[in-house]
């Protein structure tokens, strides 16, 4: 993932002599290469460096400082705003994405580290323009209110279902604990998992005895 760009001609053999790191940090952007322990290693930053990411099957390029997180790169540089910034500290799950099919918090991943990998956000979960079946199940079970936690939750739920095709309550409580919702949509999310695993949802389905759903065709966006 490090690009060797010798053209900058920067090479330091005796790195241990660098007692003051600040002095060793040239303010020019672009990766330079230094030699350490007989091997070359690229120095990125501290200024902006070129970063290429593959998001939902599309390639994006930007000049980013190494301190920019994947979440901020997606949202602010590539306008991929499905992942939300809520806690920015690996505590809430709103920024959840898949990197090479692994569920991670994009707020706590540096953009520069995510190069060369396949990043999938809620927008790309269905693989095209269509919603993923899990996302449709979120609509069907009204597992969303303000919707701010929802994109992250849909990605987490999809990944959970891939690994727990028969996920039950205890597994849901554990497996989806990394996502928090303030509006309180968890019951709907239990319904999503129930629907996707072909179970009846636990507990009473609300005011069921009295009012049935309107025609199914009334579902979806107006």
């Amino acid at each position: 993932m490090t690009t060797n760009n010798k053209s900058s001609g920067f090479s330091r053999r005796d790195f241990l002599k660098i007692s003051s790191i600040a002095a060793s940090v040239p303010l020019v952007a672009g990766p330079k290469v230094i030699e350490v322990a007989g091997q070359e290693v690229a120095v990125h930053g501290p200024g902006a460096v070129p970063v290429t990411l593959s998001v939902n099957g599309k390639r994006f390029n930007a000049e980013l400082e190494p301190r920019v997180t994947l979440l901020d790169a997606l949202r602010e540089h590539f306008d991929v705003t499905g992942p939300k910034r809520v806690c920015d500290r690996a505590e809430c799950g709103a920024c959840t994405v898949l990197i090479d099919d692994r569920l991670v918090y994009s707020c706590t991943t540096l953009a520069i580290e995510a190069q060369g990998k396949e990043i999938v956000t809620a927008e790309g979960l269905g693989g095209g323009d269509r919603p993923h079946a899990v996302q449709s199940a979120f609509v069907n079970n009204d597992a969303q209110q303000c919707g701010f936690c929802t994109p992250g939750f849909t990605v987490a739920a999809k990944s959970f279902l891939d690994r727990n095709p028969h996920g039950h309550d205890a597994e849901i409580a554990h497996g989806l604990a990394g996502n928090l919702c303030r509006c309180g949509t968890y019951r709907g999310i239990h319904g999503v998992v129930a629907q996707m695993t072909g179970r009846e949802p636990q507990g009473n389905a609300g005011t069921t005895m009295i009012a049935s759903r309107a025609t199914p065709s009334s579902k979806g966006d107006a």
Binding site: F15, L16, V36, A37, Q39, V41, P46, G47, L110
Partner: peptide, 15 residues
Amino acid sequence: QFEYLSPSSVKQALG
């Protein structure tokens, strides 16, 4: 701001 490096060996990292 920080500079970011990805060494490939323990020795290099230590250095």
